[in-house]
């Protein structure tokens, strides 16, 4: 093989490899995740209030961006709502649990359960531990 043929082969290999990866996997995402997995991972590495706040903020930003193209992933509203609940903001929490309820019928059972808990609680009781007992 001369050098020209070699170069040709390389191109062939490269293009087929690209074709292969696109054919066998690599689908375009349906949803805009906004770095959800990495942000959750960051929080799990250091589960303090500061990281919780950071995770919560990242969820909010992600939701804001995704709402533009109506591709908010399943669970995202509730996930954000729960971080707000943990940060003692029960009002925002309910709003986002309601959003999850509106968008995903599969979430309704759980969202109703959580929201019912929230409404029957006094403000002092709106800690995550109080809602956790189901």
């Amino acid at each position: 093989m001369n050098s020209k043929t070699k170069a040709c082969c390389k191109v062939v290999i490269l293009t087929t490899l690209i074709a292969l990866t696109t054919a066998c996997g690599g689908n375009k995402n349906m949803y805009n995740w906004g770095g959800y997995s990495n942000n959750l991972l960051g929080y799990y590495k250091n589960m303090d209030t500061e990281q919780l706040q950071k995770f919560s903020d990242s969820l909010y930003e992600g939701i804001e961006k995704a709402e533009v193209k109506d591709n908010v992933p399943p669970g995202m509203y509730a996930e954000y709502g729960y971080t707000k609940l943990e940060l003692n903001d029960a009002n925002t929490a309910s709003i986002y649990f309601q959003k999850e309820w509106d968008k995903w019928p599969e979430s309704r059972f759980l969202m109703e359960k959580v929201m019912k808990r929230l409404t029957t609680m006094t403000p002092e009781q709106t800690t995550p531990s109080a809602t956790g007992e189901m």
């Binding site: 349906m30 997995s37 991972l41 799990y44 399943p74 669970g75 509730a78 996930e79 599969e106």
Partner: peptide
């Protein structure tokens, strides 16, 4: 590992419950 599961399952077309919650 838990943090890597929601994306592929949701993208496959399922409602995936809020993992951290």
């Amino acid at each position: 590992f838990l943090t890597t599961l929601p994306v592929p399952l949701s993208e496959k077309g399922y409602y995936v419950f809020p993992t951290n919650m």
